[in-house]
Amino acid sequence: MTSLFIKSIKFLVGGAFIVVLLIALYGSVRGVIKEPPAETAEHAMHKHPEELKLASDGPFGKFDRAQLQRGFLVYKDVCSTCHSLNLVSFRNLKDLGYSEAEVKKIAKDWGTKQPVFDEKGGTWGERDNVPSDRFPKVYYPGTGTPPDLSLITKARHDGAAYVHSLLTGYDKKPSAEALAKFPEFAKTPDGMHFNPYFANLNIAMPPPLTQDGQVQYSDGTRATVDQMSKDVSAFLVWTAEPTLETRRQAGFAVLGFLIFAAFLTYGAYRSVWAGVKH
């Protein structure tokens, strides 16, 4: 009797899990049939980012330094009002092709200053930025919490393409068909803006790039809204991983070595096993 119980314990345990799963399955199937999942507004209106091609794409991609500099200008003149870039230091800008003196000047002239605590007086003051400083934090009093942009192209699916589509997506309004299903989207709540590329569809950020020439480019590139958003997207790919090019270069060297090693070890393996049937 006891041994029969021990022998069948596996069936009892397995059976218990399976029965509970079947009960759960019955519940889920019934739920789906009785109340088919309703289409959500996100499902009806959310758009995937449009494809964006950048010089840094692909295993052989390299940053387009001129574009990164333009993108930095867009960040400086437009985004930096609300968005910080706190994981990046001013000294990193040398990677974009700025000289030491230019970096010093950019840091010194930066609108937001570095906070300094005066130990003796117990008060907060501020000082100019220097190249070794990180881009200062930005405190934004309005609605919404503008995220730090340093890692934004890594922190969102489709990275740069998402940033570019979001910046240029404000004029895309919901279709009449979608509005008929979700009439609440006919009027965007106060202080919000409809953008089909944003996960929640309504975004607190007003359209930041609105007219051509909003940023003064000095290299002759026409500063259209599309161009500016492309440039700033490319810049934010760089801020997210300034070591991107080094990484790929190292990768080719390592792979080359390993493929050479693979041929050798294969030869060694064949020679060791030569004549041994296996």
Binding site: F260, A261, L264, T265, G267, A268, S271, V272, A274, G275, V276, K277
Partner: peptide, 23 residues
């Protein structure tokens, strides 16, 4: 017995040393 084939032992050693050196 399998090993005592016509395999050239010098080439074999060379490959094995090369593989170990690369490692």
């Amino acid at each position: 017995a399998d090993l005592a084939g016509p395999e050239n032992p010098r080439r074999r050693d060379y490959l094995q040393y090369a593989a170990v050196s690369v490692a």
